[in-house]
């Protein structure tokens, strides 16, 4: 996601207006923007409300292929929580999911509202009930595969693999049979789901990397099974 400062400036202002206690730190505006401060999160789901404040630090990378990150600088999240790195960085979502959100037009404010706030909400819900309100992603490649299952609206892992394989070849032919082998033509099957990953360079690079990792893992698994 290559963004430059001028492109993102208005979105930063929108974010600072919505979260009045966030402030922009002095940084080199060529590489990143850092915002830090207290954010109030007042959200509900399934009849359970969380209304709390959290001290966070947001890093928005500029001019490179990275996604925004958040650090829990107020140590609100328990250190043993599996979706938090030891340095306080939050495992917000998989790259594929977040990148697709930005591809679909998310502003930074929408990213806060639909990614960051639900992350904190999910943590509070899990701490209280021992269950995730709308699920969590599995570890490493399991979580990556689950993400593509959701994005492609496809529960069959083997089909997800075939769709990723087709993406890695970077050819979209809507009138040809869908790579999932459903016998439908692509545009009437998974076409709309895989098209963004073929057409957009950044999404393509993520999907290709995820596909390579999956292939490696399958190869490793086969090697161990043969021994």
């Amino acid at each position: 996601m290559r963004i430059d400062y001028n492109h993102i400036k208005s979105q930063i202002e929108e974010l600072l207006t919505s979260y009045g206690d966030l402030e922009e730190e002095d940084t080199d505006n060529n590489t990143s923007i850092i915002l830090s401060g207290r954010v109030a999160i007042n959200r509900s789901y399934n009849g359970f409300t969380v209304d709390k404040e959290y001290d966070i630090r947001i890093l928005i990378p500029l001019n490179n292929d990275e996604l925004p990150d958040v650090w829990d600088i107020g140590n609100h999240i328990d250190k043993s929580y599996i979706h938090r790195y030891p340095d306080g960085k939050l495992c917000l979502e998989t790259k594929a999911f977040m990148a697709l959100c930005f591809y679909n037009g998310y502003s930074l404010l929408q990213w806060m509202e639909n990614i960051v706030e639900p992350y904190y909400y999910s943590y509070e819900y899990f701490s209280r009930f021992g269950e995730f309100p709308y699920g969590d992603r599995g570890h490493d490649l399991v979580g990556v595969t689950e993400t593509y299952q959701q994005i492609f609206d496809e529960s069959d892992c083997a089909k997800v693999y075939k769709l990723l394989q087709a993406i890695s070849q970077r050819k979209y032919k809507g009138h040809l049979p869908c790579p999932c082998e459903s016998r439908l033509i692509t545009r009437r099957c998974h076409g709309s789901f895989i098209y963004p990953f073929i057409s957009d360079d950044y999404l393509f690079s993520i999907a290709q990397k995820d596909y390579s990792s999956l292939c490696e893992a399958i190869k490793e698994y086969d090697k161990q099974s043969n021994h």
């Binding site: 599996i82 979706h83 979502e93 999911f97 639900p118 999910s122 309100p133 969590d136 992603r137 689950e146």
Partner: peptide
């Protein structure tokens, strides 16, 4: 829930 993030574990 359909658009909310699901925390990842990498």
């Amino acid at each position: 829930a359909s658009t909310a993030s699901k925390p990842y574990h990498c």
